[in-house]
Design a protein around this nucleic acid. Structure first.
Length: 864
RNA sequence: GGGCUCGUGGUCUAGCUGGUUAUGACGUCGCCCUUACACGGCGGAGGUCAGGAGUUCGAAUCUCCUCGAGCCCA
């Protein structure tokens, strides 16, 4: 064992953190496929490579790193992979902006190349932030979804699901973003409040209320409620659509709300989801009035080519001219928008690719996963329970995984590639065999690409080594940590895909973290100007302080506000603990001590008991992912127990040559060692720095402290000792004495403590006498203290009467209570430990000050 | 409109499988530079645990209602 080295006076995170980041080796965090240790695979969320790792990501990664470091210390073979979910529109838009082009100006492959280039540069920047924050990422398990080795798997999984019938092609109404010019899934629709108008107009004699007059050209029916008296007998008739002149049927349906608008509604293909429902149910025509770019089609006649907004105004003004527009009312509405660009979505019928959703099997797998916090499961349950449409996975974009299929130019038969030819882009590569049906060699490659969620929803299959079989080697993963904002997307799709491809749940448990709010309590956003970056926090207070904010700022699962004060508090805690460590090392270094010395002094036994309690508390917290509880227990122990009480109490002994000094030294050594280990997951640099002065080797390769049995008697007696010392200190303070001033003679009357190794005498600078008997004092019975935790459950309703009866007992019976007691004519048993009588003492004659601490009497005879 | 979460000293927060005095941080006030630490120590003030009703011997904790906030979804 190397001798302890002294610590510098101050802790400089700005010097220490980068230094350790330079010393630590990536290999130490690699997952070892050959290891005999139990595996702990974390299915980490692959962030979108925007170039900045924002505070929400960083918060999530703190949780992951706490878990990874803790599990390694607990003897697991941990995999903390780092993925990058690259594909998608934001990068396409950025590339167009940077190069001053639109995506159609260059060949598809050229455009993809530009996107890849930007993405790799962004990933490079984000890797640096991950390192600065001290995350123990397993870089040997990094994956980048846009690179061939990954999207090969995406394409392979597509073909597998196509073969098993999970994926199909169909013409079906889908959500469509006319700005992104692509279909999107329901999970990508965000609802936003919006002020609009409800327009009432005359529709061939029937008054119709609509918010979307521009869809008049797409009107295929008029609907009224089945039992609406106003429209009795109208059902089955045909009406002529104003302006456009085509005939549409009137239908009746339960789903029409008679109280909304005029009670008559026009059904258009498609204004909203309800229109789709009616369209299907009543087998209505399809009239497509808006195209993929959001412009009116030839169906709209003279309005063709107008944007839908222009068309709305034009139609309204034409209606006014015709005198059929009756009135307009303002209306608060929630419109579906594209979650990426906020453009209101259109619903249009398109030939698209879909993944079949089987709610029951997804639900079954979701139930097998352990959810933390438990209530987050309800969100998944609600989402699964209301699935109506299948998942639309085709997108009309460029920077994404190509759908690897061709169609025969002659007969239209689908032609699939061989697994060994993946990855491929069917628009540039040809199949190696002609059409099986007609022998034609001419093919058309599928131009649609896959939804980005098709890439990321196999993250777990990727890290567990999936190769197409139903049981990947490391599958299922042990945990999925993620935010609650992507339960209906990433978590949902991952479960769906795991079930479809392996038949099993993807992970044993899922840990859902909250969102990060700004200091003003609102979600961080550019417009609010309340964004704080991890970099600026690390710059000012270091990454360990940031990590402690993440741990202690909120209970696991709830949203967390970013508060500078919490970061400052964390950095103060580091200063405090630094000084504690410095003091300990200073004392231990002064003189050799026996590491095996028997621990006998009361204070020493007490500290070990408190430490044992802390180890259990922190271990339990880590097991349950209650990082706030764990860190708070560590702070409480370090500051309150160790620094404020124990050290103050044993200082005298440490300064002395007394043989009992060894006992204190040993206890301090064991305590600081255990503390370093427990703080290591939270503040890896800080604990490593202290640990490096204690022993050789990294704290991060040590074991988690073993839970020790807690000597409860030592703990309770020690608690009393501490309380006595602090009460007498307070007394000194009140008497206007300096805390190190001589106090005189203190006598403590208690049978609980007979000696304390002289700690109290030195701490108070007084002569201490412990006396078990109280014969020198005049006694008189005092207050009766009831133990409600015993009385309540035992006596229920009779509790109050019981207490009254006990109070009425004569004095001599109180000290020696009877087995039975009479309450209101009823005999009841007196429960053990149900009450105790305090004793009050009086001191006659001698001039002494008296302090009462619990049932201990303390007399102080000050120096004359 | 439905679902979920929440409302605790000035601010943020723990506790919420019911049990004596409601946790901690920041702030605030007073005292102390006592040889680890003034980025510290000691002490104080500050709470109708959103409001109301109920269950119970006992409610911050369980139930119901009202008000308010946030999130998810129609």
């Amino acid at each position: 064992m190397s001798p302890p080295k002294d610590l510098p006076k101050n802790y400089h995170f700005a010097e220490v953190e980068p230094r350790w980041q330079g010393v630590w080796r990536d290999e130490d965090y690699y997952f070892d496929k050959k290891s005999p240790l139990p595996q702990f695979v974390i299915d980490t969320p692959p962030p979108y490579p925007t170039g900045t790792f924002h505070i929400g990501n960083a918060f999530n990664w703190c949780y992951i790193d706490f878990i990874a470091r803790y599990k390694r210390m607990q003897g697991y073979n941990v995999m903390f992979p780092q993925g990058w979910d690259c594909h998608g529109l934001p990068t396409e838009v950025k590339v167009e902006e940077i190069h001053g082009i639109t995506k159609n100006d260059v060949p598809r492959e050229k455009f993809r190349e530009m996107c890849r280039e930007l993405t790799l540069a962004n990933i490079g920047k984000m890797r640096l932030t991950l390192r600065k924050l001290g995350f123990s990422v397993d870089w040997s398990n990094e994956y980048i979804t846009m690179l061939p080795e990954y999207y090969k798997k995406t394409q392979f999984s597509f073909l597998k699901m196509l073969a098993s019938g999970y994926i199909y092609q169909s013409e079906h109404p889908v959500n469509f973003c006319t700005r992104c010019e692509t279909a999107i899934a329901f999970a990508e629709v965000a609802y936003e409040p919006r002020e609009t108008h409800l327009n009432y107009f005359d529709f061939d004699g029937v008054e119709i209320a609509t918010t979307r007059p521009e869809l008049l050209a797409a009107c295929v029916a008029v609907a009224v409620h089945t039992e609406d008296e106003r429209y009795r007998g109208i059902s089955g008739r045909h009406l002529t659509v104003p302006i456009f002149g085509h005939q549409v049927p009137v239908i009746s349906d339960e789903a029409v709300d008679p109280a909304f608008g005029s009670g008559a509604v026009m059904i258009c293909t498609f204004g909203d989801k309800q229109d789709v429902f009616w369209w299907k149910q009543h087998h209505l025509d399809l009239r497509k009035a808006i195209d993929r770019q959001g412009r009116m089609t030839p169906v709209a006649g003279k309005y063709e080519g107008q944007r839908s907004g222009e068309c709305r105004e034009a139609i309204l003004s034409d209606m006014k001219e015709l005198g059929i527009l009756k009135k307009q009312e303002p209306l608060e509405q929630r419109v579906g928008t594209c979650w990426r660009c906020k453009t209101p979505i259109e619903i249009m019928s398109e030939r698209q690719w879909f993944v079949k959703i089987v709610p029951d099997e997804i639900m079954k797998a979701a139930r097998e996963v352990k959810w933390t916090p438990g209530h987050m499961f309800l969100r998944m349950e609600n989402w699964i329970g209301q699935m109506e449409w299948d998942w639309c996975i085709s997108r009309q974009r460029i920077f994404a995984t190509p759908i690897p299929v061709w169609f025969c130019k002659e007969c239209g038969t689908m032609i699939l590639p061989d697994e060994k030819d993946l990855p491929l882009d069917p628009t540039t590569k040809k199949p190696d065999h002609p059409c099986e049906k007609c022998g034609c060699a001419e093919v058309i490659g599928e131009e649609d690409v896959l939804d980005t969620w098709m890439d990321s929803s196999i993250s777990v299959l990727n890290v567990t080594g999936w190769n197409g079989t139903r049981t990947p080697p490391l599958f299922p993963a042990q945990i999925r940590p993620q935010g609650h904002d992507i339960i209906r997307t990433w978590a949902f799709y991952t479960i769906l895909r795991a079930v479809a491809l392996t038949g099993k749940r993807p992970w044993d448990e899922i840990l859902v973290n909250g969102m990060v709010l700004g200091e003003d309590g609102f979600k961080m956003s550019k417009s609010r100007g309340n964004i704080i970056t991890p970099e600026e926090i690390v710059e000012q207070y270091g990454s360990d302080a940031f990590r402690q904010w993440a741990a202690a700022g909120a209970a696991t699962g709830s949203d967390i506000m970013f508060i500078w004060n919490d970061v400052i508090a964390a950095s103060r805690f580091q200063t405090k603990l630094w000084n504690v460590a410095r003091f300990i090392l200073l004392q231990l270094g002064k003189k050799e001590f026996n590491h095996e010395a028997p621990v006998t002094a009361l204070a020493d036994c007490w500290l070990l008991a408190k430490l044992a309690e802390t180890v259990s508390e922190v271990t339990e917290s880590m097991e349950q992912y209650q990082f706030d509880r764990g860190l708070k227990a560590l702070r409480e122990f370090s500051w309150n127990v160790l620094a404020d009480n124990y050290i103050e109490l044993v200082k005298g002994r440490l300064y002395s040559d007394d043989p009992s000094r060894d006992s204190a030294c040993r206890v301090l050594w064991e305590t600081i060692d255990a503390l370093c280990r427990m703080i290591a997951p939270y503040a890896p640099h800080f604990s490593e720095e202290i640990y490096s002065h204690l022993k050789r080797g990294s704290v991060h390769t040590t074991c988690w402290p073993e839970p020790l049995p807690c000597d409860q008697e030592a703990r309770d007696t020690g608690d009393l000792l501490i309380r006595l010392v602090s009460e007498i200190r307070r007394f000194k303070h009140e008497q206007g004495l300096a805390l190190n001033a001589p106090l005189g003679k203190v006598t403590l009357f208690t049978p609980q403590i007979s000696e304390d190794g002289g700690d109290m005498a030195r701490a108070l600078n007084a002569t201490i006498e412990w006396r078990a008997d109280t014969s020198a004092l005049e006694k008189r019975p005092g207050e009766i203290v009831f133990n409600m935790a015993v009385i309540g459950p035992a006596l229920r309703k009779d509790a109050k009467a019981f207490m009254d009866a006990v109070r009425a007992l004569p004095g001599d019976l109180l000290s020696n209570p009877p087995a039975m007691i009479d309450i209101g004519g009823k005999q009841v048993e007196v429960p053990a430990n149900s009450f105790s009588q305090q004793t009050e003492y009086l001191v006659g004659g001698a001039r002494v000050d008296m302090i009462t601490v619990g049932d201990v009497i303390v007399t102080v005879q000050k120096n004359p």
